[in-house]
């Protein structure tokens, strides 16, 4: 348990010779609550996909929970960026959340009572238990997003990656959701890595901030303060979407 939750060394990645990440070095403690900020196309999602083992780094190496990425999917939770558009896929809410238990399941096994119990518990946490039997296609975008969050929680992850998890959810669930993450982080010591533009909520919840714009700038702070937020804006970030009004932030000021 002493090894860091995430450790990268000179991590680089490029799409078609176009560099997306360059020499990223980071070390994230166990039990950290990390916000990842940065402009769109700055490499935030790419970084998370490398840490999940979906992409292979072109240079450098990464370790997650003391193992190469993707080695132990049952220890990792993931809420991908929500896809827009109607989801006609024939699956109900309960079956979707159960898929979050897939990492715990052997090839020959069916989902057990415990898997169902964890799925129900996760649905309760996001306030979607009464929708268990509803089909995914009949839900609103926000409700669907809550189900995907429950799917990640159902796997009882030691580290949870979230890619703009609240982009589609309603305002009422919004703060409750971050409280839920805080609770997970404090009570179960779950390491949380969340990509978000929502500085207002993040400031009262996160413990550290990383800014990704090809390079990574890590701000380790036990408390989020005004100074911390200023540091965030001092990242070489061109544009940060904040609410509906984009703030123009100048480079190197």
């Amino acid at each position: 348990m002493n090894e860091p939750a995430i450790e990268t060394r000179d991590l680089s990645f490029a799409y078609n010779h176009h560099p997306v990440l360059e020499a990223v070095n980071m070390r994230v403690r166990r039990g950290e609550f990390l916000a990842v900020l940065g402009p769109n196309g700055g490499g935030k999602t790419t970084l998370i996909r490398i840490l999940l083992g979906i992409l292979r780094p072109m240079q450098g190496r990464a370790m997650v929970l003391g193992e190469p990425p993707g080695e132990s999917p049952q220890r990792v939770g993931y809420v991908p960026q929500s896809q827009s558009g109607a989801d006609r896929f024939p699956i109900n809410v309960m079956d979707t959340v159960l898929l979050g238990r897939l990492g715990h399941l052997g090839r020959w096994f069916r989902f057990s009572g415990r898997d169902y119990q964890m799925a129900r518990h996760a649905l309760e946490e996001v306030g979607m238990l009464e929708f268990s039997e509803r089909s995914i296609g009949s839900l609103s975008g926000g409700q669907r997003q809550r189900v995907l969050i429950a799917r990640a929680l159902a796997g009882e992850p030691e580290i949870l990656f979230l890619d703009e998890p609240t982009a589609a959810v309603d305002q009422a669930f919004h703060s409750r959701f971050y409280d839920l993450l805080k609770e997970l982080n404090e009570q179960k010591n779950t390491t949380i890595v969340v990509i978000s533009h929502d500085l207002s909520v993040l400031s009262s919840h996160v413990k550290a901030v990383a800014c990704v714009n090809r390079n990574l700038y890590y701000h380790d702070a036990a408390e989020i303060s005004q100074e911390m937020l200023e540091k965030v804006y001092h990242c070489p970030v061109d544009l940060i979407a904040h609410g509906h009004v984009p703030h123009r932030v100048l480079k190197h000021h």
Partner: peptide, 22 residues
């Protein structure tokens, strides 16, 4: 039948399936 759960998660959410080691 053998790969049903894998096909299910891949068809529904490929990105999540990859993260789950499918």
């Amino acid at each position: 039948i053998f790969f049903y759960k894998d096909f299910l998660v891949m068809s529904h959410d490929e990105e999540f399936a990859r993260a789950m080691g499918v």
